[in-house]
Write a protein that binds this DNA or RNA. Structure first.
Lengths: 270, 270
DNA sequence: CATTTAGTTCCAAATAGTGGAACATGGTTT
DNA sequence: AAACCATGTTCCACTATTTGGAACTAAATG
């Protein structure tokens, strides 16, 4: 489960993930059980991270939880390196046209990270949706994104899926997933036909640069009660167009002051 | 500026802060200039952090920015260690009653961290507000929180303010601030009388546990055009009551699963 | 009161981080 | 075209930091 070394920093990040994974404040002993680190080592990590505000410690209950400094940093991350600020106006349009729930997602270590959302019915909920993660192999956005990964990254991503059977229709093998990805590449959009949650269907399109670098995906979701697949697929051209617009915009987009020239291609942010 | 050592992890966090401080994607050389680290050292930090998804690297533009992994972690932080999930319903009520902008803030290394917001006019904006930081010495929530810090923390906090003069009314010295904090402690609420932005006034109350531990603050904000101070101060009892309710709720609050297997857990450590 | 469990501290050995300097690359000037 | 410069990347001997077994303390349990 641990991502692999990267020295002290990698280990510290692992600890952060581990704390976050509990989805509730955790005690030292609980972490120790689920951890590969020896007691003293884990202890020191928790101390240091708490000290840094990356974790918070509740002295009354003696529990650790992800800290507020992360919220501060994430604000910067969301603003700067997510597609959200660029995509916002387009999502607004799409959600109004369709009247459906719209998601904007990016890939984060082979998982789907929801970055923004429009919910036709209610006003937007804050972090309750942005920052949430989900499986890639059984969601529209996840499959749409995977289909456009380069070979190496794809192989890695495909092998890291859990293939847990959420519903009868969930794809539960690498082979089945790869077949679907081929199909997606052919037609240019992905479908989630109740593969994650029964009664929930969606169509999704990848967001690509002109050089076909995959940046993210958007989807329109509905419940089967309100609409069947043919009706939902009618939205595809719209979704695709919006995805293309976002992709194009992302390409031209620079931060106000930043207008440097393009460089060459080397390191890849995974 | 740097928080002080804490070994490798501390340094890595400093680098994260540094990248975030630019508020835009930043190149290696720019970071190097504003950094105390030697070239090779900084370089390795950036590599490792990028590798870990704590930073993202744009190969086309050769820039670094805070990474998406932070967003994922912050989601957990917001859900678990902020007051936001507890306070949400109360904020809803307060904003509807007053029809004004309502903020929920917590203290993060002597700065104000906005954790949630209600804006009467428009629907909530996502991270655009939550995660944002502001000065403590010249905002209602900031002063309300500082007034209820223990002596040591207060001394540290007071000494770490910038005392930049934003407006004519900004408190620009430790002495002036301390005097105002005394006043706040006396009457139980804080005022921001155009100290941060001209034309913007607010009243704020601290959120305290029964043991007087300070958890955060809430405020109601208005522009002077629409309302003068006497009118705004009329909201104080309401604001205070909501702050008290949140404080009380925070005390009893446990995470869903935690409640069930809580048999062996003392409820109050006092 | 003895006993278990949870959390904290210590320190010698081992490892991982450090940073000066040399190298690579691509763009610009002479 | 050669010399130059700015930016980014790699190397490696030196050293500071991390490591983790074990001993210790504090508090809960029977």
């Amino acid at each position: 489960m641990p991502v692999a070394g990267d020295g002290t920093i990698g280990k510290a990040c692992d600890v952060l993930d581990q704390v976050a994974a509990f989805e509730r404040p955790v005690r030292f002993a609980e972490l120790l059980d689920s951890s590969d680190f020896p007691k003293a080592t884990l202890y020191r990590f928790l101390q240091t991270l708490t000290n840094q505000g990356m974790l918070s410690y509740d002295p009354e209950r003696q529990t650790y939880a992800p800290g507020m400094r992360l919220v501060r940093l994430a604000h910067a991350a969301w603003t700067q390196s997510s597609l959200a600020p660029i995509a916002r106006p387009f999502l607004d349009v799409l959600s109004q046209e369709t009247g459906e729930t719209v998601h904007l997602a990016q890939l984060d270590s082979s998982q789907v990270l929801y970055v923004d959302k429009r919910n036709a019915a209610q006003p937007i909920e804050m972090y309750s949706q942005a920052g949430k993660v989900g499986p890639a192999y059984c969601t529209g956005v996840g499959k749409a994104m995977m289909a456009y990964l380069d070979d190496d990254t794809l192989t890695k991503a495909v092998s890291q899926q859990s293939y847990h059977r959420f519903t009868e229709k969930t794809l539960t093998s690498e082979a089945a997933l790869r077949a679907d990805l081929d199909l997606i590449r052919q037609r240019g959009y992905a479908i989630d036909d109740e593969e994650h949650e029964p009664g929930i269907i969606c169509v999704a399109c990848p967001i690509l640069t002109s050089g076909n670098r995959m940046l993210g995906a958007i989807s329109v979701t509905r419940s089967t009660e309100r609409m069947d697949f043919n009706q939902l697929e009618a939205w595809v051209p719209r979704v695709r167009r919006v995805a293309e617009q976002i992709g194009a915009e992302a390409q031209t987009w620079r931060f106000p002051e930043l207008r440097t020239k393009l460089g060459n291609d080397r390191m890849q942010a995974t």
